[in-house]
Amino acid sequence: MYWYTAVAALVPLDHLGRYLHWHWLLISVANLAVIAIMVVTFLAALLLPFPGRRRRKENQ
């Protein structure tokens, strides 16, 4: 058994994807998850300190 078979078992891809349907909105769970990760990344980019920023301020 290859190592990636075990990893692939965590995310089953050999059957139909799951979808969320609410009135006019229809979106796959996979796409919703990607959008959620993008929002989290966006917020993290705004909030996390950038390495070396303090050093630059001290040098000025």
Binding site: A44, A45, L46, L48, F50, R53, K57
Partner: peptide
Amino acid sequence: PTYVSSWIYVF
């Protein structure tokens, strides 16, 4: 410029 040292400018 100093303000560029933020993760939001990396994308």
